[in-house]
């Protein structure tokens, strides 16, 4: 049987960082303008797919860029920054292409139904919202919010991956990369789904009233990630 106390005391910092990463991911999801199925029909502001798919798309890209950076350097700051930038690029590309489709394809102006004036550009919003819809496209504030969300999510994902790779273990490099990656993916998905249940479908970004609910999701993620962090650190550390 493995030495549970010994492994945990040796890697207590990893457990803390993984839990922190999970909480960051949970918080980040609240920034991403998720429109869900209504947005796919240009009837709600945001990107036309679910929270999990968006968070996973951006977060996993962050993991890939963080992993690529880990081949070059052991510096935690660089790895984490690389993860954040990767996720920001991915979510940014998704949002800009989505905006092209809404503007040039569907033919709707980006408009938010939650605020009358865009908090960043101060542009009027309410008169551009089509009747019977909850806004459409991605106004500037949602775009900026989405980029912040991508950065935080990538940061969290990279933090988890880096911490798992830093656990003291007897595994060979290939096996460690495989195990750390799948643990990071598993923990990432758990933390992407918890906030999506908190949001309940759609959110426009940090200006949306639903954004204020984030502490609940972060609390839930804290408990859930701590459990996953213990399981994963014990697994990797025990080998």
């Amino acid at each position: 049987m493995i030495d549970i106390v010994g492994i945990l005391t040796a890697n207590v910092l990893c457990v803390v960082l993984i839990t922190l990463g999970g909480m960051l991911i949970s918080w980040s999801v609240h920034f991403v303008p998720v429109g869900g199925a209504p947005a796919a029909m240009a009837q709600a502001t945001g990107i036309g797919t679910g929270t999990v798919q968006l968070a996973a798309g951006a977060g996993l890209t962050g993991l890939v860029t963080a992993g690529a950076m880990m081949n070059m350097t052991d510096s935690m700051a660089l790895v984490v920054a690389s993860g954040a930038v990767g996720a920001m690029i991915m979510i940014g590309v998704t949002m800009i292409v989505g905006t092209w489709v809404y503007v040039y394809g569907v033919g709707v102006p980006p408009a938010s139904a939650k605020v009358d004036y865009d908090p960043i550009t101060k542009d009027r919003q309410d008169i551009y919202v089509s009747q019977g819809t909850e806004g459409h496209g991605l106004p500037t504030v949602s775009f900026v919010s989405g980029i912040i969300g991508g950065a935080l999510g990538g940061l969290g994902g990279a933090l988890i991956y880096y911490s798992l790779m830093s656990v003291s273990t007897g595994l060979t490099a290939t096996n460690l990369v495989g195990l750390a990656s799948i643990f990071a993916v598993g923990i990432f998905f758990v933390n992407a789904v918890i906030p999506s249940y908190n949001i309940g479908g759609t959110i426009e970004g940090f200006h949306d009233p639903k954004f204020k609910k984030w502490p609940k999701a972060v609390q839930a993620s804290f408990v859930a990630t701590l459990l996953c962090a213990l399981a994963s650190v014990l697994t990797i550390g025990g080998l």
Partner: peptide
């Protein structure tokens, strides 16, 4: 009614499952 798409719960299932399975098999 989950408030969001059904796919979320499948991804959650495997997310929880993969952490638990690797832990269980390892120890």
């Amino acid at each position: 009614g989950l408030g969001t798409g059904v796919p979320s719960i499948g991804m959650l299932a495997l997310g929880m499952g993969v952490v638990a399975t690797m832990f269980g098999l390892a120890v």
